[in-house]
Computed example of a mutant assay.
Amino acid sequence: MKATIKAGVIGAAGYAGGELLRLLLQHPQVAVAFAQSASQAGKAVAATHTDLVGETELIFSAKADAAVDVLFLCAGHGEAAKYVASHQIADSVKIIDLSQDFRWNEATTGATVPFEGREFVYGLPELQREEIRQAQYVANPGCFATAMQLALLPLTQQQLLPQQVHISGITGSTGAGQSLSATSHFSWRTENVSTYKVMEHQHLREVGRTLQHLQPGTSPEIYFIPYRGPFARGIFMITYLETDLKLEQAQTLYQDYYSSHPFVVLSKYNPDLKQVVNTNKCVLYLEKHGRQLVITSLIDNLLKGAAGQAVQNMNLLFGLDEADGLRLKATAF
């Protein structure tokens, strides 16, 4: 089948950019027109993303050097907005931003605050798939924000959230990006666990906005503790809250909500992180202990939490099957 969508990637040398290239190169409807990287310009893509040896002859370009139908921004927080403001991008080009720059410029409802005349729609398909289908510009959700919202959306839609929700989540080192820091270096991270941004993680802003929209006036306080994990990728999140729902009622609520969404799976068995690593899935598992409903939410931070969700949004923007190019295999062992 001949590719019909020309794609370009800005900031293609990082973790999210590399993961996006892996998906796009295998997508049946996409041709990668360019992979831009200021730091790697002139070098072979496969020399940086070494797992792509034999998969592509692409060379990193210093700038966007070809016409495209869709532009992915993987330039990092703060850089994406600068890029849009300083470059002439044809009005016909769809934009999907993987940074946080435009998550805070739009409203979950689809009522947007324009940036440089462009209105970005929040790109969580399980929340507003139809709005994404009609959009031109999409702001990809954060990884923790994705795992949190998918754990809470069915309850929120029915306005069943209590006044307090407690969440803890541990993430792999790739969530910190490719640039080295003291807490991402192997010798520090391995066999180690630590908390960071306790109760004040930036993703709480977008989650709070969603909850306020779906459950206005009574949206809960979220108490979130993020952890750095001694592994490369994946998010393992536990949410617990008080509810009078019986376990069977909660399971039915979740099954009904996600019945038409291909990447959210309600597990009958206590899941583990390897079930989602290297996939675009979110696996949910519900337990009831007294009045506490415990929700386990698992995603791959680089796929459903970043590049995979971006491709899912691209599929929606272009009227494709939502799962095209995303039927991926988990690593069981």
Rank of each mutant, 00 (worst) to 15 (best):
V283A: 02
F236W: 15
E206N: 10
F60P: 01
Y137R: 06
R129D: 11
A31G: 08
V45D: 01
Y223K: 12
G217R: 04
P114H: 05
Y83R: 02
D51V: 15
L150Q: 10
K6E: 10
A139N: 08
Q128W: 00
Y15P: 04
L317D: 12
P226C: 10
R189Y: 04
E79I: 08
K268H: 14
H213D: 13
I59C: 08
L124W: 04
G177T: 01
L58M: 02
V68S: 05
S259Q: 10
V265N: 05
L328I: 05
M1Q: 14
P141K: 01
L245E: 07
W188R: 06
T218W: 00
K281R: 14
Y196R: 03
V32S: 05
A85I: 12
M237H: 01
P220M: 06
G11C: 04
S259C: 09
Q163F: 15
L286A: 04
T331C: 10
L204D: 12
Y254T: 08
Q29S: 14
Q212K: 09
L180K: 13
T183Q: 12
V84G: 01
I238F: 09
K268V: 12
V121S: 11
K268Q: 14
V138G: 07
T56C: 00
T183A: 10
D300T: 03
L71W: 06
M1G: 15
Q255K: 14
A145L: 07
D244R: 11
S92V: 06
A31Q: 10
V68C: 15
Q178F: 10
L124R: 10
L25P: 09
V30K: 02
T174F: 13
L211K: 03
Q128L: 13
V207A: 05
I59P: 00
G319A: 09
S297N: 08
A67K: 13
T296R: 11
G54T: 12
R189D: 05
F120N: 00
G208E: 08
P125V: 00
Q251T: 15
A62Q: 12
L180S: 13
G54A: 03
Q26W: 06
D300C: 05
Q100M: 12
E206S: 15
R118S: 09
Q149R: 09
A38H: 12
D97R: 01
